[in-house]
Design a protein around this nucleic acid. Structure first.
Length: 475
RNA sequence: UCCUCGAUAGCUCAAUUGGCAGAGCGAGCGGCUGUUAACCGCUAGGUUCCAGGUUCGAGACCUGGUCGAGGAGCCA
C-alpha cells in the first residue's frame, strides 16, 4: 500500500480536522501508538501524533525527530517512497510543527530518540499545524534568563521533559508508598490566619473583612489535628515562602509533602522516612531509566539508596565540623566552614557531612534554639530537641526536615510564650493537647530538592514546571 | 539585607593597549540516501542594557541607574 497525501488543516475548523482524521483512519488503518511502546510494533504500520522536535534533511532523505509526550522517535522520509509534493513538504517542516505521521516501524540501532533504537519509515504525513519559523528555543544552549522567559516552550526540550517526568514519578511513588502504608491524604488550607514560625517570610493577602490572610508555609499544624481523627495522614501541595533566598536550592513556591503520624517517636519517624525515600528512589530508577540515562545520571549512585540510612547526632556532626574548621588552612574555605556548637548548618556544612556517606544521612538532635517552637525537648537535655534532618548525598543538602512534636499542653504553651508568639492564634493547636494527646511526629519533604538530587541537576528551578523565584513570576 | 560577577545579531559568545561590529547556531535559498546539536556554499540580520562624562576617536575607561546570575543569611 502506498498512500501519499498531505492535509494542511491549520486554517480549517475543528470539525473539518475531525472529519479528515477519521477519513485517514479508514483509508490507512494504522493503529495510533505511543512512542514509549514503539519497540512492540516492529514490522507493523502505525500512526504517531506529535510534534517535530528536530529535522535533518539530506538530499533525498529526511529525518524528523518526533516527540509525542511519551518519548522521542525518529521518522524517516525517502524521496522515492513519497509523492514529490509530500516529500517536499516534509523537507520544509518547521521545528515544532504538529503532525500525524504513519508508516512502518523498524528496528535500527542508528535511530536516536527516547527510548531510541526504533524508527518509523514515513508513508503518510498529515500536518495539523505548520509552526511559524521564528520558534525561539533552538536546540542549542540558552542562558538562564532567556530559558526561563520561555519556560512555556523550554519544557518541550528533552532535558526538561526528562526532569519533569522524573518529578511526576517522584510524586506518584510518594503517594503510592504512603497510601500502601496506611496514610490518608488530607488537604490542608493554603489560606491561613497566622504563621507557624513567625510572620517575616509569609506572602500576605487581604481577606475580605477578616484582615490579613497568609499563604501557607506548612500544613503541619493542621495535620496535627488530622492525626487525632485519622492516625496517619499526609498533605501534599504547594508551599509559599517569601524569604529572599537566592540560591540553587530555593524557590518561593515549592511543593512539600508532609506526613504526620500519631503514636510515633523520633526513631519510628526516621524508619518511615528512609523506607519512603528508598521506595521513591528505586521506583524512579525502574520507571525512569531512559530519562535518567538521557540526563547522564549515574544510576549506580541511586541503586545504593536502601534503608537503613546512616544516623549521626548533631553533637557528633558538630564535633566533626569543628575539627574540619580548625584544620582548614585556606582562609576563604575556613570562613565558609566556621562552626561552633549551637549553630545551624549552612550549605557548606551539609555538603561536608554528606561526603562521609554514599547514602542519605540523618542528623538528629539539633539545638532547640535553631529549630521551631513545637519540637519535643530531648529527655534530660532541654537545650536539644527531638528533631531530624535528612541530607541527600553529593551535596544536595536537606531534603527532609522533621521532629517529634511537643505533646504536653503546658510545655507547648511555655514554648509559645518564650518565642513571643500570639497565644490566641494557637488556641486550637493547644487544644489538641487537652483531649487524648499522644506522642506524635512528622516531617516535610521538598519535592524539587528530591527531584534535583535524583536527576543530578544543578538548580531546582528546573525541577518544577513553572518556577517561582524572588525575581520571577512569569510565565 | 550583604558580597561577587554579568548585559554585544533571534540564541550562545568573541572583539588584543581605546582605532572599520565578528563567528557559530537559528532563519531564507541551493547541494547531498543514514543524519545523531549533520555537513558544504550563498543571503539577510546590530540603539553593543539606559543616562551622562573623559577622548580626535568608547563595545571597552569614569559616574549614576536598570535588569539578571551565583553565593551568604534563612529555609524544604
Amino acid at each position: 500500500m502506498k498512500i501519499s497525501e498531505v492535509f494542511i488543516l491549520s486554517d480549517k475548523p475543528l470539525s473539518a480536522i475531525m472529519e479528515q482524521s477519521s477519513y485517514l483512519k479508514d483509508s490507512f488503518m494504522a493503529e495510533h501508538i505511543s512512542i514509549s511502546n514503539i519497540s512492540k510494533y516492529a514490522g507493523q504500520n502505525v500512526t504517531l501524533r506529535g510534534w517535530v522536535y528536530n529535522r535533518t534533511d539530506k538530499g533525498k532523505l529526511c529525518f524528523l525527530l518526533v516527540r509525542d509526550g511519551s518519548g522521542f522517535a525518529q521518522c524517516v522520509a525517502f524521496k522515492g517512497d513519497l509523492e514529490p509534493e509530500v516529500f517536499d513538504k516534509t523537507m520544509r517542516l518547521p521545528q515544532e510543527s504538529a503532525i500525524i505521521v504513519s508508516g512502518l516501524v523498524r528496528e535500527d540501532q542508528r535511530a536516536p530518540g527516547i527510548p531510541g533504537g526504533y524508527e518509523l519509515g514515513i508513508k503518510q504525513i498529515e500536518i495539523v499545524q505548520e509552526a511559524e519559523l521564528d520558534y525561539p528555543m533552538s536546540l542549542k544552549d540558552h542562558g538562564v534568563d532567556f530559558a526561563l522567559d520561555h519556560r512555556h516552550l523550554w519544557i518541550r526540550m528533552q532535558s526538561q521533559w526528562a526532569i519533569l517526568r522524573v518529578r511526576a514519578a517522584v510524586m506518584s511513588a510518594t503517594r503510592e508508598w504512603l497510601n500502601n502504608n496506611g496514610f490518608f491524604e488530607m488537604s490542608t488550607p493554603i489560606l491561613t490566619p497566622a504563621a507557624a514560625e513567625g510572620t517575616t517570610t509569609l506572602f500576605e493577602t487581604e481577606y475580605f473583612d477578616e484582615g490579613k490572610a497568609y499563604l501557607a508555609q506548612t500544613g503541619q499544624l493542621y495535620n496535627e489535628a488530622n492525626i487525632f481523627s485519622f492516625g496517619k495522614v499526609y498533605c501534599f501541595g504547594p508551599t509559599f515562602r517569601a524569604e529572599k533566598s537566592k540560591t540553587r536550592r530555593h524557590l518561593t513556591e515549592f511543593w512539600m509533602l508532609e506526613p504526620e503520624i500519631a503514636f510515633c517517636d523520633l526513631d519510628q519517624l526516621m524508619e518511615i522516612e528512609e523506607n519512603m525515600i528508598a521506595h521513591i528512589a528505586q521506583t524512579v530508577l525502574k520507571e525512569c531509566a531512559a530519562e535518567l540515562k538521557f540526563l547522564g545520571r549515574d544510576a549506580s549512585k541511586l541503586e545504593r539508596v536502601f534503608a537503613p540510612f546512616p544516623r549521626m547526632s548533631y553533637d557528633d556532626a558538630a564535633k566533626y565540623l569543628i575539627d574540619l574548621y580548625e584544620k582548614e588552612t585556606d582562609p576563604e574555605r575556613k570562613a565558609l566552614l566556621k562552626f561552633e556548637w549551637g549553630m545551624d548548618f549552612g550549605a557548606p556544612h551539609e555538603t561536608e557531612l554528606t561526603k562521609l556517606y554514599d547514602q542519605p544521612l540523618f542528623v538528629y538532635g539539633y539545638p532547640s534554639a535553631v529549630k521551631a517552637f513545637y519540637m519535643e525537648p530531648w529527655p534530660d537535655r532541654p537545650e536539644v530537641c527531638k528533631s531530624v534532618d535528612l541530607l541527600a548525598p553529593e551535596g544536595y543538602g536537606e531534603i527532609c526536615g522533621g521532629s517529634e512534636r511537643i505533646s504536653n499542653h503546658d510545655a507547648l504553651l511555655a514554648r509559645i510564650h518564650k518565642e513571643g508568639l500570639p497565644e490566641e492564634a494557637f488556641k486550637w493547636y493547644l487544644e489538641l493537647r487537652k483531649y487524648g494527646s499522644v506522642p506524635h511526629s512528622g516531617f516535610g519533604m521538598g519535592v524539587e530538592r528530591v527531584v534535583a538530587w535524583l536527576c543530578g541537576i544543578e538548580h531546582i528551578r528546573e525541577a518544577i514546571p513553572f518556577p517561582r523565584t524572588i525575581k520571577r513570576v512569569y510565565p
